[in-house]
């Protein structure tokens, strides 16, 4: 069963305040991803890998086509439908962590569970377990991650992404700034998610990681506009 079904999607950016420059990024993208499958996106810098992820997340607006994810066409959905999809069925580990200032790490990680109505003690337990597994020292849990190192922030981001079990995950360079031990943990998390039937789209510059978790690679060149 395909959990992600992209058909005929195109994306251009028009920069109205820079002489209406038009940047065609991709055209006629069609791609499906089945439950339990991990598809990796390949391509040079600027090829549109992150843009495609953001289209799937509903963060960028598709100029045309359909992007059906776990029953919702994000290319046409209302804001509240996209928010419901993100809340219940999809997780996104972006390249960089973006958080509300002043919120402690433990709450940042537990939040995706809390908003789906998981009791607070249960959500916090799950957050502690994942932070422990990702080796974030306990003394940091009560602090906001805004001042953490790059690798620490990335692991917080990963913990936040993996705290729920969802049918769809988007992973943008999840192992980029991690040491070997933490990288291993993240790859195991990805393998466990696949085994549960999660459909994954990922960007991995790390070739060994790619070989280990991706079932298929997609060259963005194919969709060059």
């Amino acid at each position: 069963m395909n959990v992600i079904e992209i058909s005929n999607v195109s994306k251009t950016f028009t920069l109205h305040n820079q002489g209406a420059a038009v940047i065609p990024v991709m055209s006629d993208v069609s791609l499906s991803v089945a439950a339990g499958e991990c598809v990796g996106l390949l391509g040079a810098s600027g090829a549109g890998k992150s843009t495609l992820m953001r289209l799937l997340w509903g963060n960028y607006l598709a100029a045309s086509g359909q992007i059906v994810i776990a029953g919702t066409d994000v290319a046409k959905a209302e804001p509240r439908e996209i928010l419901a999809l993100r809340r219940d069925r999809m997780a996104y580990v972006s390249q960089f962590l973006r958080v509300v200032p002043r919120v402690p790490t433990l709450d940042v990680v537990a939040e995706p569970l809390l908003v789906t109505g998981t009791p607070e003690d249960q959500a916090l337990d799950a957050a502690r377990a994942l932070l422990t597994r990702l080796r974030i020292p306990e003394r940091l849990w009560s602090l906001s991650p805004t001042t953490f190192s790059g690798g620490e922030q990335q692991r917080v981001n990963i913990a936040r992404g993996f705290i729920r079990q969802v049918p769809v995950m988007l992973l943008d360079e999840p192992t980029a700034s991690l040491d070997a031990t933490n990288r291993e943990t993240v790859l195991s998390l990805i393998e466990e998610a696949k085994a549960r039937g999660t459909a994954i789209v990922g960007i991995f510059h790390d070739e060994a990681a790619r070989d280990r978790v991706c079932d298929r690679m997609i060259e963005m060149e194919r969709f060059a506009a």
Partner: peptide, 18 residues
Amino acid sequence: QGLTDQVLDDPQHPYTQL
């Protein structure tokens, strides 16, 4: 009008882009 992060990250109208 639209989803907040979409309007801020991928604004369509010239005025929103500005």
